[in-house]
């Protein structure tokens, strides 16, 4: 089972890449209580029957792993959503594409921690292939000053192919500088909520 919500997110994004998508749009919005992510692609899509089978842990699309019968990404995701009162909504049309929407309550005891957003975006953007990917990231209900957009084509134009240690380290540094303002806003909100519940002098507010 995945250890962080970011691991689920990376898994969903890779499904889109492996579905031969030429365009992938990832949107991640987070508040002090909810994590919402949508991954949409224009890949091969799934028929109703395939979509049903993708939720079966003992099914994996042939061609991807010829000798294996397990496909755990989507089942893990659905299990976690079910355990935590979250939601997973998958819309897919064969030949058109797939959209996966994930909503998880971050404060539920069984929800894994959010995890390393910078590492997740670095890995997703640098996965081999000639696809385009746009990642939109923001804190919920903010004025937008914290939000940022990562465009794979733009980043490739700036850094060159995203496959050497040097370019990946620069990419990581760039994403970290964008993510810092989202984290700052989220941390200040969590602090305000704790102060409102426990009072300013309570050690739990830290």
């Amino acid at each position: 089972m995945h250890r962080t919500i970011c691991d689920f997110l990376l898994d969903i994004i890779q499904n889109s890449i492996e579905a031969d998508a030429s365009g992938i749009v990832v949107e991640v919005i987070q508040s002090e209580s909810l994590f919402e992510a949508t991954v949409g692609d224009d890949g091969c899509g799934m028929s109703e029957e395939e979509l049903k089978r993708a939720q079966d842990p003992f099914y994996s699309k042939q061609g991807k792993h010829d000798h294996r019968k397990a496909g755990l990404g989507i089942p893990f995701l659905m299990q976690t959503a079910s355990m935590t009162g979250g939601q997973v909504d998958i819309q897919s049309q064969q030949g058109i594409g797939t959209s996966v929407r994930l909503v998880l309550p971050v404060d539920h005891i069984d929800t894994p921690p959010v995890g390393d957003m910078v590492g997740t975006f670095t890995a997703a953007l640098s996965y081999p292939g000639s696809f385009g990917m746009v990642i939109k990231r923001s804190a919920a209900a903010s004025a937008g000053e914290d939000s940022y957009v990562l465009d794979r084509i733009q980043l490739q134009e700036t850094l060159g192919e995203l496959e050497t240690g040097v370019s990946l380290n620069l990419l990581r540094r760039y994403i970290a500088s964008q993510e810092a303002s989202v984290q700052e806003l989220l941390n200040s909100r969590v602090k305000s909520v704790k102060e409102a519940v426990h009072g300013k002098d309570d050690p739990r507010r830290a």
């Binding site: 691991d7 890779q14 670095t122 640098s126 050497t164 240690g165």
Partner: peptide
């Protein structure tokens, strides 16, 4: 991913930087 490959990728990037290795390709696969 479930076993922490993302942390492994980050560790490679950090160490390549620390060792000033510029000619190493880092790619991902399934």
């Amino acid at each position: 991913i479930a076993a922490g490959a993302k942390d492994t990728l980050n560790a490679f990037l950090q160490e390549l930087d620390a060792q000033h290795l510029t000619d190493v390709l880092i790619t991902q696969t399934g």
